[in-house]
């Protein structure tokens, strides 16, 4: 057998392994609802939030939240954080709905629930760092969306929060393999999706998409989850994908990354996501990115405080 044939066989084997891993992941994801740590209210709530605000009943939300004491406590803790713009101390879920409005409470609730998605012991990486990045990306996406006059900043928050959902999936369903990925990323200071490609043959974008489809998440959220590292391929909702993709990079550049130094320089004007937004919003040419970057540092501190306090109270 010659060298070329050997290489061919090896490549075929690798492709088969990759397919196997995807199949395995797909079959495991079907069982996600049976994992005891996944809060029972998460799935109904994810569907419920797809309704327009005027269709949402306050009472229904209060009931959903109040069925779990620790979720209620965590939810109120977040509601009292300056990041969600509280106007005065709230001590009941109903009070939080009235003070903050249904949409903000929905964001808070989902944030609390997602933190519980994978228990601490399952994490191959520090969950505090992961959630700091996800919350950071959610807040930066919302702020960025506001700055450029995107029509739905709250949607950008949600998309930012969920963009790395696939990392959670990998933690839950491929714990051993993912541990090796995290180690590779940290040692070689690689972005996760590159390390995943090398060790797993699939990325958190693939696994996130599988869970998003299994849960029946909105098309635009699935698009963000799948394409945030390959923005140009996003045919559906490219603007939202671009907002989250840029916010993701900004977070990684401003201290809300994956906990290690990524030795690279980013010229946002060269980023395909920036080009997409400039096409959609011509006034982006005048965007003061330096100032926006300075303003984000305020978030960095607050996000760190908030996530650390959530975890110090035990999730």
């Amino acid at each position: 057998m010659n060298k070329t044939e050997n290489t061919q066989i090896k490549q075929n084997e690798e492709k088969a392994e990759e397919r196997d891993l995807k199949e395995l992941l797909r079959s495991r994801i079907k069982d996600i609802d049976s994992i005891p740590t996944i809060p029972a209210i998460l799935r109904p709530l994810l569907h419920y939030m797809e309704q327009t605000v005027d269709q949402i009943e306050v009472q229904k939300i209060v009931e959903l939240v109040s069925c779990d004491e620790s979720i209620t406590a965590q939810c109120l803790h977040m509601a009292n954080s300056p990041l969600f713009g509280r106007t005065h101390e709230v001590d009941t879920v109903r009070g939080a709905v009235i003070a903050l409005g249904v949409r903000k409470l929905r964001d808070i609730l989902l944030s609390c629930l997602l933190v519980r998605l994978a228990p601490k012991e399952r994490w191959a990486m520090d969950p505090v760092i992961f959630w700091q990045h996800s919350f950071g990306c959610a807040l930066v996406s919302r702020q960025f969306a506001r700055k450029i006059n995107y029509h739905d900043p709250e949607r950008a928050y949600l998309a930012g929060l969920l963009h790395d959902l696939g990392e959670v999936v990998n933690c839950i369903f491929l714990p051993e393999e993912f541990r090796a990925t995290v180690e590779k990323a940290c040692t070689e200071q690689l972005p996760f999706f590159e390390a995943e490609q090398a060790t797993l043959g699939l990325t958190h974008c693939d696994s996130g998409k599988m869970l998003a489809q299994h849960w029946g998440l909105a098309e635009e959220l699935t698009s963000v989850i799948f394409y945030h590292h390959d923005v140009e391929q996003a045919k559906l909702h490219p603007v939202l994908v671009a907002i989250v993709s840029l916010s993701d990079t900004l977070c990684r550049m401003r201290g809300l990354g994956y906990g290690f130094y990524e030795p690279k320089q980013t010229d946002f004007l060269d980023d395909p996501a920036w080009r997409i937004l400039t096409r959609e919003y011509p006034h982006m040419a005048e965007f003061d990115l330096a100032r926006f970057t300075f303003e984000l540092d305020e978030y960095t501190l607050q996000v760190r405080e908030l996530v650390s306090s959530i975890f110090s109270k035990g999730s």
């Binding site: 401003r254 201290g255 030795p263 980013t266 004007l269 970057t293």
Partner: peptide, 13 residues
């Protein structure tokens, strides 16, 4: 000059 970002700092290229 163009603004470039590094982790935790910026410069102009």
């Amino acid at each position: 000059f163009r603004l470039v970002h590094f982790p935790g700092s910026t410069a102009y290229r």
